[in-house]
């Protein structure tokens, strides 16, 4: 029997981000000649943590070059939890800076000799919001996945100097297919928020698909938290793989 070889490597790299800054990133890739499709993994507000790096390796295992930029790089150096605390106290990652960092991650992935040139983005929680934002502001992306991004819709009092525009207001500019993964017990975004986002995507004729899961709340992929829902998470991971498989191959 001829068993396919599986191997991957993961390491810390640097790539160019917003304003030409060099930022750190966690990068994982299959150990083969490729060419492989590419994914940007966006961490949540608690930072460039173990769980998000594990997801980055998971994409490499699935056959993607995957990079997770450290969105709190400039608040460091320091441990991911300490720099996340600084970022949070300052009002979170500025949207413009995130867009520049994500665009830099995209260029990094496209430059790899074993890249197929297609780049998707996936984010979780605040990273889900940022993934939606990237879909609207980075027209060169090939696919985007929003996993339970809160505050895609924002009231005027929720807008700040760092997050001055609600991501939903960029819906008309979205230039790639969008996948949404949501738990119906979530409080942020609520099912009503998801309905409103879906209406906006429909109104603008965007290519999207939303999957909503009963019995699941916020962050139901997180295997080390009480909110983990193995059945729903396994099904939703399957949707993510099918979606990226269709649009990044």
């Amino acid at each position: 029997m001829n068993t396919p070889y599986q191997g991957l490597m993961a390491e810390t790299v640097t790539h160019t981000g917003a304003n030409g800054d060099l930022i750190s990133a966690y990068f994982a890739r299959p150990l083969g000649a490729g060419p492989y499709p590419n994914v940007i993994v966006v961490h949540h507000m608690p930072g460039w943590d173990d769980a998000t790096k594990e997801i980055t390796r998971r994409f490499a295992y699935y056959g993607y070059n995957a990079v997770c930029p450290n969105l709190h790089h400039r608040e460091g150096p320091g441990e991911p939890d300490d720099v996340a605390a600084v970022s949070r106290a300052a009002g979170g990652v500025p949207d413009d800076r995130f867009v520049g960092d994500a665009a830099g991650a995209m260029e990094f992935l496209r430059s790899l000799p074993y890249s197929n040139g297609k780049v998707g983005i996936i984010g979780f929680c605040s990273g889900g919001r940022q993934s939606y934002l990237a879909a609207g502001r980075i027209p060169e992306l090939d696919a985007a996945v929003d996993c339970w991004g809160g505050r895609v819709i924002a009231t005027p009092d929720q807008l700040t100097a760092r997050q001055p525009v609600a991501p939903i207001d960029y819906t008309s500019d979205i230039n790639c297919p969008l996948l949404g993964i949501f738990g119906n017990d979530d409080q942020s975004p609520t099912p009503e928020d998801v309905n409103r986002t879906e209406e906006e995507l429909k109104r603008h004729g965007k290519d999207y698909e939303f999957h909503r899961y009963d019995g699941a709340g916020h962050g139901f992929f997180e295997v080390d938290r009480p909110g983990y829902r193995p059945v729903q998470a396994t099904e939703a991971w399957g949707e993510v793989r099918k979606f990226f498989g269709r649009h990044l191959a």
């Binding site: 949070r88 979170g92 929680c125 809160g150």
Partner: peptide, 9 residues
Amino acid sequence: MCSWIVETA
């Protein structure tokens, strides 16, 4: 939720 809302003292 996952937000940047912080109360400070």
